[in-house]
């Protein structure tokens, strides 16, 4: 078995080719447009928020990739959860995510979204964002540099172009009961209204 970056890249490309061969030209075009225009709702939940301004402004200029910040979840395609989430924040994050239109993706920024990071024994932060919301792309680090975030975007772009059925929003739609149960366990009576009706007529 070959090793190294090139081998990894080739394996990705062959996978890409096999998926693409199953798609029609229109689907591929749509996926291309989706990958090249990403509206981001940057939710500054934790310290990761400090890495986003340089990413968006002159120093790193992520607008080159077609990534633009928007203010409201209605227009956003990508939700960045930047760092640790206290339950209080998470409630708003979930609400925001649910109001986004499909297809939608989540980038978990920083180690805290993966396993709690340095807040692993905190009584007031969640440990694994994926229990509550389907994360499409993790950007590891504490804190990850803007370069890492850009790398995350590029990887996510590839994922979007594949238009795979493993996208987070499809997982969320199909396994809503699971996510909802986790949310209810965390928030108890204060959980936000269910969004299940939204999936009626979809698929």
């Amino acid at each position: 078995m070959e090793e190294g970056f090139n081998a990894y890249r080739q394996s990705l490309e062959s996978e890409e080719q096999s998926i693409k061969s199953t798609q029609s030209v229109v689907e591929q075009a749509i996926a291309w447009f989706r990958a090249h225009s990403m509206f981001v709702l940057a939710y500054g939940t934790g310290c990761g928020a400090i890495e986003m301004p340089p990413t968006f402004t002159s120093r790193y200029d992520i607008e080159r990739l077609g990534v633009v910040g928007v203010a409201t979840p209605r227009q956003a395609d990508i939700l960045i959860v930047s760092g640790y989430c206290s339950p209080k924040t998470l409630k708003r994050v979930i609400r925001s995510y649910e109001q986004m239109s499909d297809p939608k993706y989540i980038i978990g920024l920083g180690s805290c979204t993966i396993n709690g990071g340095m807040y692993w024994d905190s009584y007031n932060t969640i440990k694994k964002l994926d229990d509550f919301l389907p994360v499409d792309m993790y950007v590891n680090g504490c804190m990850p540099r803007p370069e890492a975030l850009i790398e995350g975007f590029v990887k996510l772009q590839e994922k979007i172009r594949l238009n795979s059925s493993e996208a987070g929003y499809i997982k969320y739609r199909d396994n809503y009961a699971h996510y909802r149960a986790n949310q209810e366990r965390l928030f108890g009576a204060q959980v936000a209204p269910s969004y299940e009706e939204n999936f009626a007529g979809m698929n």
């Binding site: 447009f33 989706r34 225009s37 509206f39 227009q75 979809m202």
Partner: peptide
């Protein structure tokens, strides 16, 4: 690109 993408959003 943005406008096309928004036109083909699923919802």
């Amino acid at each position: 690109f943005d406008s096309v993408k928004l036109f083909v959003k699923e919802q």
